[in-house]
Amino acid sequence: MTEKTAMTDRNSAEQAYSDFTRSLSYGDYLHLNELRAAHQPITPAHDEHLFIAVHHVSEVWLGLIVRETQAAMRLLEQGITDAPLKMLTRVVRAQEQMTNAWEVLKTMTPSDYLEFRSAFGQASGFQSQNYRMVEFLLGNRNPVMLRPHAHRPDLHDPLKAVMEAPSVYDLALRLLAARGLNIPDTVLNRDYAQKYERDEAVVEAWLTVYRDTDTYWDLYELAEKLMDVEDNFRRWRFNHMTTVERTIGFKRGSGGTSGAGYLRQALNIVLFPELWEVRTRL
């Protein structure tokens, strides 16, 4: 056998493993049978397949965002700032994928959607436990949002626990306080179940960080990464709103909200107000 023939044989598809009677195959490892079984349209409408696929994929990305955010928060609680940046960068990249998913869903016209919309009744992304978990972790808290999960303790209780614990921004403010910056006790020991409210002393603390980045480089990097997260979250919400408006106009949403109107109002939510205000005050 020539050297060239031997190289060809090594590169041949014949070299790939083909006997999986005693080991995991790709499909086994990913449980693809279960994944495909979960894709269950309830009407003959062609675009219902698209609708389900986009929401399935989004839920997987949301699950990853929850996991990475919580991992970053565990490290921030220990005063570690470098490793969380990698995890939050992964959150940002996952957010980008979710935002791009709306572009695929926009290929569904209003007429396409009306072929199956009535079939799933009151089911709505408003009821997504993963999405609500992301909002709670980032600090957008509202006890009313627990209600859709009251019938499922396995969903309700983890959400309630996160809502009553510090958000990722609360942990960032604790780091500022630990570095000697003035963060009031009313901020550090607030009722975490409520939405965070802007505080002038916190603005001043972040201004100190941004005016002396050499001294506070790690906090400065963390602040900018949090800005990346909120920036992408805003883009996702905006694309969600325009997709809904493009598909159903201003009809009421299946989950009972006003639909596009509710989503438009949500665009005004600010998660890290002082980090946005710093831009004006510098």
Rank of each mutant, 00 (worst) to 15 (best):
A71L: 15
L75K: 14
G79Q: 05
G139Q: 09
I269N: 08
H31I: 01
S258P: 00
Y210C: 07
M1W: 14
R179L: 04
N182M: 14
V60L: 15
V57T: 15
L219E: 03
L222W: 02
A161W: 05
H156V: 00
V57P: 02
L155H: 13
H240G: 05
Y113N: 02
E115M: 09
H49W: 05
A71C: 05
S124K: 00
G125P: 12
A37K: 07
S167M: 00
L275M: 13
D185W: 01
R36D: 10
V92P: 04
V203L: 15
L137F: 04
A71H: 15
Y26W: 07
D199P: 08
G79E: 07
G125C: 05
P143M: 07
D82A: 13
Y26K: 08
L219G: 05
E274V: 00
I248A: 11
M108Q: 12
V57F: 12
V54L: 10
R90A: 15
F233T: 09
L219S: 08
I52W: 05
S128C: 10
P153I: 10
L146R: 04
S167E: 01
Q194W: 07
H39T: 04
N182E: 15
G261K: 01
V144F: 09
L85I: 05
T186K: 14
E230C: 09
E115V: 10
G256C: 07
F51G: 07
K195R: 13
Y192L: 08
R190L: 00
A205D: 03
N189M: 12
S25D: 02
T247W: 01
E164G: 10
E135F: 11
L181N: 04
L181G: 11
E103K: 06
L75V: 00
A119M: 10
V104Y: 12
P84N: 09
V203T: 04
P41F: 12
I269H: 11
E245Y: 11
G79P: 12
D82K: 12
T43S: 13
N100M: 03
A161T: 15
S18T: 12
I65Y: 04
A205W: 09
R279Y: 03
R132V: 11
A150K: 14
L271A: 03
S58W: 12
E3M: 06
H46S: 09
H49E: 04
P158N: 06
A6P: 11
G121C: 13
A101M: 13
E77L: 03
L62C: 04
D185H: 03
Q78L: 12
D112E: 05
S254W: 01
R36Q: 10
R198I: 03
E164I: 04
V54A: 02
P166K: 02
N100C: 07
S128K: 06
P41T: 12
R132G: 02
N189I: 07
L173Y: 02
T43C: 11
E103V: 04
R279A: 15
D82G: 10
R174S: 08
A119T: 08
L271G: 05
L271N: 09
Q95I: 00
I42Y: 06
G249W: 04
E274G: 02
P166R: 00
E224H: 13
A71I: 15
A37H: 03
D154S: 15
L267D: 11
D9W: 14
Y29N: 01
L267G: 08
M87H: 14
M98H: 08
V66Q: 09
A83E: 10
I65A: 03
Y216T: 02
V203F: 03
I269R: 01
A201K: 14
A193D: 00
A223C: 09
